[in-house]
C-alpha cells in the first residue's frame, strides 16, 4: 500500500519513499527536501510539507509543532519571468529583506 500512496505530486514521491529516507537518517524536512526534491515543485510544499512532517513526527516521536518546516521563499505562486520583466520597468528600486 505504502508504495501507492503519493505524498509529493510534483516530484512523484510515495509514502514509502519518504519513510525510506527517514530510515536512512534524513529526519528534517529540509534534508528530505534537498535529497529528494519533495516540496521543490510547483506546489512549493503546500501539499507535501504537512504530510512529510507527520511522517517524521511518527518516526522520531517529536510533535509536528516542534519540527522545523524549513524556510519559505518567494514567490507565493509561480509567475512567468516575462511578467516580472514587465513589472520591473517601473519598479526595481526596493529591496525586500
Amino acid at each position: 500500500m505504502k508504495e501507492s500512496i503519493i505524498i509529493c505530486r510534483c516530484s512523484d514521491l510515495t509514502q514509502q519513499d519518504i519513510r525510506d529516507l527517514i530510515n536512512e537518517g534524513y529526519t528534517t524536512f529540509d534534508e528530505i527536501k534537498r535529497i529528494s526534491r519533495v516540496g521543490m515543485g510547483p506546489c512549493q510544499g503546500r501539499t507535501c510539507l504537512p504530510l512529510v512532517l507527520k511522517e517524521i513526527s511518527i518516526a522520531i516521536g517529536i510533535p509536528m509543532s516542534d519540527l522545523s518546516p524549513g524556510t519559505f521563499r518567494p514567490p507565493v505562486k509561480s509567475i512567468k519571468l516575462e511578467a516580472l520583466t514587465e513589472e520591473a520597468i517601473e519598479g526595481g528600486e526596493s529591496y525586500l529583506e
Partner: peptide, 24 residues
Amino acid sequence: HFVEEMSKTITKLLPPLKNARFLR
C-alpha cells in the same frame, strides 16, 4: 531587486525563458 534584474537580463539573453515560470 534580484528577481527583477535577473528576469530582465536573462530574458534578453535567452528569450524563450520569458515563458518559464519562476518557482522559488
